[in-house]
C-alpha cells in the first residue's frame, strides 16, 4: 500500500468521523442528505461481500467493518434517533436516488470484470459511489448556506477521491499491470463532481466568508 492510498483512506475515515461528530455534538443532521448516506451504506454493503471470502490484510478487514458499521449508524441516527431525525431537511433532499441505483445496477450487469454475483455487486458499488454524493450536493445547493462541519465533511470526502486518483497514477507506474479500469474511470467521474464544490470552498476560504453554493 502506498502513501497516497493510505492518506486517501484516512481522509475518508476523517470525513465519516466529522459527520458522526456533527450528529453527536449538535444532535442535528441539518444539511446532511439521508439519501447520500443510504447510498453509501448500500455501497459498502455491496462492495464488501468479500469480507468473509477474500482476506487481504487485517487493515482492510478492519476498515471494511468500520465503513459498514459507521454508515449504518449514520442512517440509523437520521431515521430513528428521536432528536436527530427532527432536524432532517426532508423537503430539500429531493434527489431521485432510486433511478440512480437502478441505472448503476444495469450498468454493473453490462460492464463488469467477471459475471459473478460478487463481481457484479463490486462494479455496482463502484458506479454507485461515483454518484452517491449527488443528493448531498443538491441539498447543499438548495439550502444555500453550508455549516462548517458539513463543508469539512464534503471537503474530506473530495480529498479522499483526489488521493485515490494519485494512488492509481502511482500504481500505474510502479506496478507491472494495474488495470482496474472500472474503478479508475468511475473515480475520475466522481472526483469531477467535487470540482465545483472545491472551487466555492476555496473562494470562501480565501475571502474568509461563510461557504455558500450558488443556486
Amino acid at each position: 500500500m502506498n502513501i497516497f492510498r493510505f492518506a486517501g483512506d484516512m481522509t475518508h475515515l476523517i470525513s465519516i468521523l466529522i459527520l458522526l461528530l456533527k450528529i453527536y455534538a449538535t444532535k442535528s443532521c441539518a444539511g446532511i442528505s439521508l439519501k447520500t448516506q443510504e447510498l453509501y451504506a448500500l455501497v459498502f454493503l455491496t462492495r464488501y461481500l468479500d469480507l468473509f471470502t477474500d482476506y487481504v490484510s487485517l487493515y482492510n478487514t478492519v476498515m471494511k467493518i468500520v465503513f459498514i458499521a459507521s454508515s449504518l449508524a449514520i442512517v440509523w441516527c437520521m431515521r430513528r434517533h428521536p432528536l436527530v431525525r427532527r432536524s432532517y431537511d426532508k423537503d430539500l433532499d429531493t434527489f431521485r436516488h432510486q433511478y440512480v441505483v437502478l441505472a448503476c445496477f444495469v450498468l454493473a450487469l453490462l460492464l463488469n470484470e467477471k459475471f459473478t454475483i460478487q463481481e457484479v455487486f463490486w462494479a455496482f458499488s463502484i458506479y454507485l459511489e461515483a454518484v452517491a454524493i449527488l443528493p448531498q450536493l443538491v441539498l447543499l445547493q438548495r439550502s444555500g448556506n453550508v455549516d462548517n462541519l458539513t463543508g469539512q465533511y464534503v471537503l474530506f470526502l473530495g480529498a479522499y477521491r483526489g488521493l485515490y486518483i494519485i494512488n492509481w497514477i502511482y500504481r500505474y507506474f510502479t506496478e507491472d499491470h494495474f488495470t482496474r479500469w472500472i474503478a479508475c474511470v468511475s473515480g475520475l467521474v466522481q472526483t469531477g463532481l467535487y470540482a465545483d464544490f472545491f472551487y466555492y470552498y476555496y473562494l470562501s476560504w480565501k475571502t474568509n466568508t461563510k461557504l455558500k453554493l450558488p443556486a
Binding site: D50, V56, N60, K64, E113, E119, N167, H177, R180
Partner: peptide, 10 residues
C-alpha cells in the same frame, strides 16, 4: 488473469 484477483482497495 487480473480479473480474478481480489480487490485490494477499499
Amino acid at each position: 488473469d487480473k480479473a480474478s484477483e481480489v480487490h485490494d482497495e477499499l
